[in-house]
Nucleic acid binder design. Structure first.
Lengths: 231, 231
DNA sequence: CTGAATTATTAGCCTAAACTAATTTAACGA
DNA sequence: TCGTTAAATTAGTTTAGGCTAATAATTCAG
């Protein structure tokens, strides 16, 4: 009496995604954008065994979040992409709040935001956006997707790919703790303006001068970890 | 080689409690304080079937959070009590933030805090406390346990138990939505100062006068839902 | 175009935390 | 004290989301 045949109200499609599913959606987005993410890449990013990922891909397809074909990876559907952007919006707004109002340091912020992003409602998110003055970038300089799902793609690139003479602004730095610590100690933090003095092809060392006239020579590894945007 | 016998590092004791376990701890505290909570009471408070509760009691005993005896209920251990108070501290600080800084209404606050309290770290909690100026009461007037676990017990009581002539302040109101709505519409919100005009034994109707001289007659059900503290 | 090496999948198992149905214990009134 | 009722427990099942070991598909180098 209650169910009148195979209409389109599959229970798997309706329920809002669990924290795990959200993590997968975000990982697929980060690893492959609008393309297809491989089992391996997602498994690595989430530190989860590959078979668990295969398994989840199947379930996420049933939920309508991805298009999945065996041995071919999973790509986000329109709905999946929407979920990913909503999650990234939450994450970046939360990070902004933690850094600007609660005195978090760069090191501590990520882990906390990673947990909170699964717990806040859309209502919370929009009020927090209001509280923060509707920022369109987080303190890393990464764009914050709008509430309607639109967002400006990230136009930053690794410092190693800059050209000599260019003036750039640091937008974010790789989140490996020791890298972060070194860069922090030397004042190379997001928002900082740099002039690129030399990019040496031979060994990949990039020499930059900061706003205070200080000079820094960064090896290949560091030049790959510092992301900048043209000024 | 790795495990050298039955020493005291049981894995069940170490891992930090899941959101479910936290809910149980809090429920036991709310239902029974330092006494023993019955299966039924906890089941009702959490809207969970009784057998699930029995099951959880056993596991929580293994975790060292409760003392449990079959057919006799569960009471919190020192550690369990500590967890409960930490959770309540988080909850009340979060509510304070939502109400005072994000523009939440009384109606919306509870649900959001209920989810967030499981997601925030101790570090977040203490920074939030700092941000809020280390309040020792939430906007309901309920005491906020200190970070070290000490706290002033709640000395509020239902309006129905007040005496005629007494001056009292509303500390909290029952969280049934329709009750909340009615009381809100009539300005009977936490913080409000009242003079008790009459407490009629016959039918339990309590008549009060508010700060603006308005008079309200509250029946038994409402008088039980409004908690006050002597002024 | 064939055979490693890489990647993915299947099969089977585990845990936390819920459920229902059936049974047992406790408690209380006559 | 006995029997009825209310409460609690046991037994067995379910679902989400992990895991390992074994197998299969794909890809790439020669």
């Amino acid at each position: 009496m209650a169910s009148m045949g195979a209409m389109t109200d599959d229970p798997a499609l309706t329920r809002s995604p669990s924290a795990s599913v959200e993590d997968y959606v975000k990982a697929i987005w980060e690893v492959a954008g609008s393309g297809a993410a491989s089992t391996k890449d997602v498994a690595e990013r989430l530190s989860i065994a590959p078979p668990s990922v295969t398994n989840m891909f199947v379930r996420m397809q049933e939920m309508g979040l991805v298009e999945y074909e065996r041995y071919r990876g999973a790509s986000l559907t329109r709905r999946g992409r929407g979920e990913a952007l909503r999650l990234i919006r939450r994450h970046r707004l939360i990070e902004t709040f933690l850094l600007e109002h609660l005195g978090y340091t760069w090191r501590e912020v990520h882990e906390e935001a990673e947990r909170l992003e699964h717990a806040v409602s859309d209502g919370f998110t929009e009020r927090l956006a209001e509280f923060l003055g509707h920022p369109d970038q987080d303190p890393h300089g990464d764009p914050i997707p709008a509430a309607d799902g639109s967002f400006a793609p990230d136009d930053s690139f690794p410092l190693g790919e800059a050209a000599a003479g260019q003036r750039v602004r640091i937008s974010k730095v790789g989140d490996d703790p020791s890298t972060l610590e070194y860069l922090g100690d030397h004042g190379l933090v997001p928002g900082r303006l740099l002039s690129v003095r030399e990019v040496r092809d031979l060994d990949g060392v990039v020499t930059v001068e900061d706003e205070d006239g200080g000079s820094h020579a960064l090896g290949e590894a560091l030049a790959r970890a510092v992301f900048v945007r043209g000024e």
